[in-house]
């Protein structure tokens, strides 16, 4: 055997297989449609509308996760209480439940046969077949990603820093704003991005709760079912391109700051 042993070559070949497995289908899909087809898809109102719906509802979902998830993530990071593991497992549930099941579960609460659905419909909120329903599903599937990332971020801030801030006269709230948040915001942003990404890619649950208005994944599926692979590809390419651009922009906002401290 030469300088590099069998273990090295096994690792390298497995790495190549994994990368090829991920990149090859994506590459094929991205390069399949001609520029003319892409341009045509972009002029299609339905395509633009569905991509726009996907983007803004997933951002709305991530914003909701941020508002309701941040306090919970902080509590989970800072305190230890009985049943904490149970709470953490409950938060992870949406990751493991099959997607159509999520949709059915949400419908069973939001339907007219349930008191909650009745209440919602009385105040004029419609879940079934509405943007509200799409956002509800997206919050459901995206929350664990935000909460887990934010919790890890809070855990990485030493409690001593908060204790010192309190001893210097800062209230709990002031300590969070001036110490904890500035030190954990990058993890929170990463969680926000993950939550968005998970929300925008959701299909199974959304198709159950709201076939219309169509989000991009539903539209892609419909075109695939109705007209075949060739007609679904341009929409898929646009969705991927728009998502990647957005996430790259968000990441570049977050990354240069990491090198700011001398």
């Amino acid at each position: 055997m030469g300088g590099k042993g069998a273990f090295y070559w096994v690792s390298v070949s497995c790495g190549v297989v994994v990368l090829a497995f991920i990149l090859l289908p994506l590459y094929e899909m991205l390069t399949a449609p001609s520029p003319a087809m892409l341009a045509e898809a972009m002029r299609d109102k339905n395509v633009v509308g569905s991509i726009w719906l996907s983007i803004y509802s997933s951002v709305a979902a991530a914003c909701i996760a941020f508002v309701v998830g941040t306090p919970l993530a902080y509590v989970l990071a800072r305190s230890s209480f009985r049943g904490q593991q149970l709470v953490e497992s409950i938060i992870d549930l949406p990751i493991v439940i099959p997607h159509p099941v999520v949709g059915i579960a949400i419908l069973s609460v939001a339907g007219k046969n349930h008191w909650f659905g009745q209440l919602m419909s009385d105040v004029g909120v419609r879940i079934m077949g509405s943007t509200t329903g799409i956002i509800t599903v997206m919050v459901f599937v995206g929350l664990p990603f935000y909460i887990n990332a934010a919790r890890t971020g809070f855990q990485s801030v030493s409690p001593r820093l908060e204790k010192v801030a309190r001893s210097l006269g800062a209230s709990m709230w002031s300590t969070f704003v001036r110490i904890t948040f500035p030190l954990a915001w990058r993890s929170m942003l990463a969680g926000f991005i993950m939550c968005c990404a998970r929300a925008i890619s959701e299909f199974g649950a959304i198709v159950v709760v709201a076939y219309h208005p169509m989000t991009a994944p539903v539209l892609i599926y419909e075109r695939f079912e109705g007209y075949g692979l060739q007609y679904s590809q341009p929409v898929a390419v646009w969705l991927v391109v728009v998502c990647l651009t957005l996430f790259l922009v968000l990441r570049t906002i977050a990354l240069p700051a990491r090198k700011k401290n001398p």
Partner: peptide
């Protein structure tokens, strides 16, 4: 703690 007027300095200094 913020109302006590008691300062604390930790071993690792805990500077922000």
């Amino acid at each position: 703690p913020e109302k006590r007027g008691i300062g604390i300095m930790y071993q690792d200094y805990a500077l922000f």
